Simulated scan of single mutants.
Amino acid sequence: MATKRDYYEVLGVDKNASPDDLKKAYRKMAIKFHPDKNPDDPTAEEKFKEAAEAYDVLSDPQKKARYDQFGHAGMSGNGGFGGGYGQGGPSMEDIFSQFGDIFGDDSPFGSFFGRGGAGGQRQRVRRGSDLRIKLKLTLQEVANGVEKKIKVKRHVACTTCGGNGSKNGTAVQTCQSCNGTGQVRKVVNTMLGQMVSTNTCPTCNGDGKIVTERCDTCFGEGRVLQEDVIPIKIPAGVAEGIQLSVGGKGNVPPRGGVAGDLLIVIEEEEDGDLKRDGSNVIYDLYVNFVDAALGTSVEVPTIDGKARITLEPGIQSGKILRLKGKGIKDLNGYGRGDELIHVNVWTPKQLSSEERSILERLRSSPNFQPKPTKSDKGFFEKMKDFFHG
């Protein structure tokens, strides 16, 4: 799809929907559009995946908060369903692995979820653990976006055994207890009829296979610890505490399955000159009162380097100057903030005898007497200009 639909619209719920309402809405959509139930509808699988992606985001408090604040742009660069699972979106196995249990084994639609559609059972795909790291960014990197290469130690599939934990990858046999499904079903007769429960096979621990001889490299784990260098593109406008994720760059589970995600928590380094305020940056400029009275030009730091500005004669302390478009790019791509320069007229704390004598002669001069006009706005008027100008 060229343009993503609103996740709330996809599931047919409002922003105040409870977790139970979200689950019910997703269940309804997934049953309606499951490909096995709609073999003649080529769009059914895409709608099924779209519903899974929407539920993945809205059922997760952190992802939901980020989506509510930033929309689809807030999901950019994220793994999992909400961030674009690989190039073609989430696979059917990914969805079955993550959400299959939402339907239950005794559901009339159980053959569609977590089990094969025509005869045998589908073994649940196991998912490895996520990795979480903190990434510090400068104000310039936050403002413009940046590409980083991150070193992480993570569990990857053992290349000697292909990830199954057996010697040379061949010393395995199908588990006889579950016939390779990784699950055992138990039927109990009660007064109300037969009750069916499905549990992880205790013999193979859900693997479906038994390792008869362990791999010498991974000692039967099917995975080894390895240091990887992972490139990641940080979008412009991210903020402190935002969590990005790279799908499939976490740990792989023991003896086969899909890898978890690499979760990246953004931290902002404090800048020596500029302070962030949303999409704007603020700079405190100090000038002596001679320059303030006579006017001057000064250099000020910006995110993109230095800029020279002119101070008009008679500029007052508290004046806010605005450099358009010198702030931080919006995460959703809606333009860029400004740099706000707060002028502070510096009053000397120590004076020489000569300086004191000069100022004493000027003390009673008519032009040195405060005579504010309507154009010399007070604090509250300046703050109004700051927020609405």
Results as ranks from 00 to 15, higher is better:
Phe99Gly: 05
Asp101Gly: 01
Asp101Cys: 06
Ile102Asp: 14
Ile102Val: 11
Ile102Arg: 01
Phe103Pro: 15
Gly104His: 14
Asp105Met: 11
Asp105Ile: 14
Asp105Cys: 04
Asp106Phe: 05
Ser107Val: 04
Pro108Asp: 07
Pro108Leu: 06
Pro108Phe: 04
Pro108Ile: 11
Gly110Gln: 10
Phe112Leu: 14
Phe112Gly: 07
Phe113Pro: 11
Gly114Trp: 01
Arg115Ala: 15
Arg115Met: 13
Gly116Lys: 13
Gly116Pro: 15
Gly116Gln: 08
Gly119Ser: 10
Gly119Met: 14
Gly120Met: 15
Gly120Gln: 11
Gly120Ile: 09
Gln121Ala: 15
Gln121Ser: 12
Arg122Tyr: 09
Arg122Asn: 00
Arg122Cys: 03
Arg122Ile: 02
Arg124Asn: 07
Val125Ala: 09
Val125Cys: 07
Arg126Met: 10
Arg126Tyr: 02
Arg127Trp: 01
Gly128Lys: 05
Ser129Cys: 03
Asp130Trp: 05
Asp130Arg: 04
Asp130Thr: 06
Leu131Gln: 08
Ile133Gly: 01
Ile133Met: 06
Ile133Asn: 03
Ile133Leu: 10
Leu135Pro: 04
Leu135Ser: 03
Leu135Asn: 05
Lys136Met: 10
Lys136His: 03
Lys136Trp: 06
Leu137Cys: 01
Thr138His: 08
Thr138Ala: 06
Thr138Lys: 07
Leu139Arg: 03
Leu139Phe: 04
Glu141Leu: 11
Glu141His: 06
Val142Asp: 04
Ala143Ser: 00
Ala143Asp: 02
Ala143Ile: 11
Asn144Ala: 08
Val146Lys: 15
Val146Tyr: 10
Lys148Thr: 07
Lys149Leu: 04
Lys149Cys: 05
Ile150Trp: 01
Lys151Glu: 02
Val152Ile: 13
Val152Arg: 02
Val152Asn: 01
Val152Gly: 09
Lys153Pro: 00
Lys153Arg: 06
Val156Tyr: 05
Val156Met: 09
Val156Asn: 04
Cys158Leu: 09
Cys158Phe: 00
Cys158Met: 02
Thr160Val: 06
Thr160Leu: 12
Cys161Lys: 00
Gly162Glu: 06
Gly162Asn: 01
Gly162Phe: 08
Gly162Thr: 07
Gly162Arg: 10
Gly163Glu: 06
Gly163Trp: 07
Asn164Val: 04
Asn164Pro: 10
Asn164Phe: 09
Gly165His: 07
Gly165Phe: 13
Gly165Glu: 08
Ser166Pro: 09
Ser166Gly: 15
Ser166Lys: 11
Ser166His: 14
Lys167Phe: 07
Lys167His: 13
Gly169Val: 11
Gly169Pro: 02
Thr170Pro: 04
Thr170Tyr: 09
Ala171Ser: 15
Val172Ser: 09
Thr174Ala: 03
Thr174Ile: 13
Thr174Lys: 15
Cys175Met: 07
Gln176Glu: 15
Ser177His: 12
Ser177Val: 09
Cys178Phe: 01
Cys178Ser: 08
Asn179Phe: 13
Gly180Ile: 01
Gly180Lys: 02
Thr181Phe: 03
Thr181Ser: 15
Gly182Ile: 02
Gly182Thr: 00
Lys186Tyr: 12
Val187Arg: 12
Val187Lys: 07
Val188Asn: 00
Val188Lys: 11
Val188Tyr: 07
Thr190Ala: 02
Met191His: 10
Met191Arg: 06
Leu192Glu: 03
Leu192Asn: 06
Gln194Thr: 08
Gln194Pro: 00
Met195Lys: 14
Met195Phe: 10
Val196Asn: 10
Val196Leu: 08
Val196Met: 04
